[in-house]
Each structure stands twice: as structure tokens, then as C-alpha cells.
Design a protein around this nucleic acid. Structure first.
Length: 197
DNA sequence: CCCTGATTCGC
DNA sequence: GCGAATCAGG
């Protein structure tokens, strides 16, 4: 494989998005992360401030700004990161969870395509649910192809839309999910207190 | 151990 | 220019 314009473009894009070299390499295919890093350097964009190479971040030559720290802004999470406009859906093996999870999207689901197996949401420990919420913020938001044997395969969102991704956090050894998701995926068949019908 | 990027250097 | 090997970390 060689660095065609398209591939370089993809590289630039993903790199500026903060993707890791290994993930970029996987996405491009035919190259290793080393190759990606090497290219990144040759392109002179090792500094992810993907801007013009001009800016020389040196001495502002200013009197010491006595910024007291009035109202520190909470730094809004990069929630609105634009998803890759690549609607590719490889037909690889679906990382189907053994015990279908329940993506807690309380909101209404667009409907249309079949959703991933969603079991009757039993009651899951409030703690587990909470940690799941937490995790979704830190999730790697991996695409189907980025999943490995040690990335959490918990799906989030509607597969029929672009707003769909996999947790991607480190899995609990052996399990297909990270700790938080294991917590909600594997529930003992305890108290079924619904009346037998 | 898993992962990250950075550098070197023979090709 | 390329990227495997290596280095230096988290």
C-alpha cells in the first residue's frame, strides 16, 4: 500500500480528530501504526493542533497576566463531535453480545431498522445503571471495525443511525464488556416477581 | 499487559 | 519517502 491522496487525507482527518495511530492504521488497512506515525511526522503534523505550521507558540511577550480565575468554564465535553461521514457497514461478524444489553436510551427510538437484541429490561441495580451512564462519557466510541478482543463491545445508540458506537473501554478479562457494562449485561436470574400468568 | 506517540536508520 | 525496530512513556 502507498500513501495515495485519499489515504493521506483520511490520515489527516482522523489524526486531527484525535484518533490514535493504531486506529488510523486499522482503518486505512495495509499499514501499521508505525507507518502512520512515520507519515504523520513526515507530514509535519505531529502536533495535533492541526493548523498552519506558522504559529510559533513562544513568549507572548506580555506582562504577567494576573488572571485570578474568575469563572472557570467547565469545558463542555466534546459531545458534538461530528461523526465520520463514512456510512460503511462491513458485513463482518456482528459482535453480538451473548446477553443482549439494554442501551438505556430513554428517549424514543427512531424506529425503522431492527434494533440490537434488547431484552425486557429487567431491573438492574441502580448502581450499575449509574456507572453505565458514567462510562458512556468516557467511552472510546469505537466503530465496528475497531473492536478487539479487549475492547468493550457494548453497543450504544441506534445502529440505523450514525449515532451508533461501541463502548470500547478495556474489557473485564474474559468478558466481552468493560466492568460497568458487565454489570448490567450479566444479571443473575433472580427474583422474578411477576405473577405467573 | 495493554496501550500511546517519538525517533532512528537501513532500505 | 517509507516503516520496522526501538525507545519512552501511561
Amino acid at each position: 500500500m502507498s500513501w495515495t491522496d485519499e489515504r493521506v487525507e483520511m490520515l489527516k482527518k482522523m489524526w486531527s480528530e484525535g484518533q490514535s495511530a493504531s486506529r488510523i492504521a486499522k482503518e486505512l488497512g495495509g499499514v501499521t501504526r508505525n507507518a502512520v506515525i512515520g507519515k504523520v511526522h513526515r507530514l509535519g503534523l505531529s502536533n495535533r493542533t492541526g493548523g498552519t505550521p506558522e504559529a510559533e507558540p513562544e513568549a507572548p511577550a506580555q506582562a504577567a497576566p494576573p488572571a485570578p480565575d474568575p469563572a472557570p468554564e467547565p469545558a463542555a465535553p466534546p459531545q458534538a463531535a461530528e461523526p465520520a461521514p463514512e456510512p460503511k457497514r462491513p458485513e463482518t461478524e456482528e459482535p453480538e453480545p451473548t446477553v443482549a444489553p439494554t442501551p438505556m436510551r430513554k428517549s424514543i427510538i427512531p424506529a425503522g431498522q431492527p434494533l440490537p437484541p434488547q431484552p425486557s429490561a429487567n431491573e438492574i441495580s441502580a448502581e450499575a445503571l449509574e456507572s453505565v451512564r458514567e462510562v458512556e462519557k468516557k467511552a472510546k466510541r469505537l466503530g465496528l471495525m475497531e473492536l478487539t478482543e479487549r475492547t468493550c463491545k457494548w453497543p450504544v445508540g441506534d445502529p440505523a443511525t450514525e449515532d451508533f458506537w461501541f463502548c470500547g473501554l478495556p474489557v473485564q478479562t474474559g468478558k466481552p464488556y468493560c466492568e460497568a457494562h458487565v454489570g448490567v449485561a450479566f444479571q443473575p436470574m433472580n427474583n422474578r416477581r411477576d405473577r405467573k400468568r
